[in-house]
Computed example of a mutant assay.
Amino acid sequence: MLDSIEKNLHSMNIDEFRKDLISWYLLEKRDLPWRLDQDPYKIWVSEIMLQQTRVDTVIPYFLAFTEKFPTLEALADADEEDVLKAWEGLGYYSRVRNLHSAVKEVMSSYGGIVPDTPEEISKLKGVGPYTKGAILSIAYNVPEPAVDGNVMRVMARILSIWEDIAKPKTRKIFENILYEVISKEQPSEFNQALMELGAIICTPTSPACLMCPVREHCHAFHEGVQSDLPVKSKKKKPKQVTMAAAVLKDEDGHYYIHKRNSSGLLANLWEFPNCETSIDIVSQKEQLVNFLNDEYGTDAELEPLTGTIQHIFSHLVWNISVYTGQLKPGSSYKDLVKVTETEMQRYAFPVSHQKIYQMSLQ
């Protein structure tokens, strides 16, 4: 397999490939806010946001985030609660917690300047091989490859690579190829052009080959197998979890919310009290009432089921039954925080609990 990749790579006119790709990019590139300059901080923020999130979704978040935290120093000095609130709705919150930690390290160890070498930037929390390559190439014009799913898909088709891109070891194959192929003079434009090509032309399904600026160099196109590449094994089905959540208020209209643990899924975000439930002779509602009493010492009167929501993670699915209820006068609420409706807007909630809140208003 590797011999055929080497053969295809060495038969390729790399200079012409670079020229065709970069020329197309400079003419056709999308007008995206993080392309206005080569500020390493803003490029870093955009690349972290773009991981596992669509460009159209990221744009308003990027604009709002960089308005609130316009410089690396501003983000480093920010309170974590404010940072999480600015990220609210983007998901994958470990990304922004790592970013927040890393910019603090840049302030303390690098004088506020994002490192410009592979060795130093790789030491920062949350900066893996892709983010390293993206920042170094785009901001500093360092010929460092930035290999993500988009890029692997493009290069798998260009060079007819049949290795499974879901396997971690395959990424190294693509990195080694791109060290040879990347433009040494225009690495910023080259990497962004590959990303752009994968986003708008060489898409996962129905690639627009007739519009592709590098189809002459593409082995998959000439072999008619572009729709079969890349090879990607399927993930396991996510685990289904049944849950119940309570939107609790008291007689004065205060809400009662809970902060999640500082590690694990959705760490440090806020939520309405909830628990996993089982299909049992005891109803979900009764299981939730018992949980509220056992966990928080809370005595609450719950209304009938308001509705259910489903929230899908990469590895599990939450199926949440939503109840509203009222705390009985004098009831305890240990480990819950009492807030007004206005105060609650300052806290960062995961999307699932934003949905729960909206459902409770119906």
Rank of each mutant, 00 (worst) to 15 (best):
D37P: 08
G325P: 13
N98P: 00
E295Y: 09
K184L: 15
V127I: 13
D56Q: 15
A156D: 08
H100D: 01
E88H: 04
I257Y: 09
Q52D: 01
G253E: 03
Y25E: 02
P60G: 05
I158E: 05
Y61W: 00
Y347T: 02
A146I: 05
L136D: 02
Q345V: 10
Y93Q: 07
L178C: 07
H222Q: 12
S108F: 04
V317N: 12
N150A: 08
E16S: 15
L2M: 12
D82Y: 08
F69N: 05
R346K: 14
I5W: 09
V58Y: 01
M195I: 09
A166R: 01
R153W: 01
S278K: 13
R215M: 02
Q362L: 12
V282M: 12
K236I: 10
F62T: 04
L266S: 06
E216Y: 04
F349H: 04
K167R: 14
E80F: 04
P115C: 11
T131L: 11
K68Q: 14
V151M: 11
E47C: 08
E81C: 04
A76R: 04
H353E: 00
L302W: 13
V154M: 07
I113S: 00
M1Y: 05
P230L: 03
S331C: 03
L84R: 00
E144A: 15
K29I: 13
E163V: 07
T71G: 09
F17C: 12
K125W: 03
L288N: 11
Q51L: 07
A146Q: 10
Y93S: 07
S283E: 03
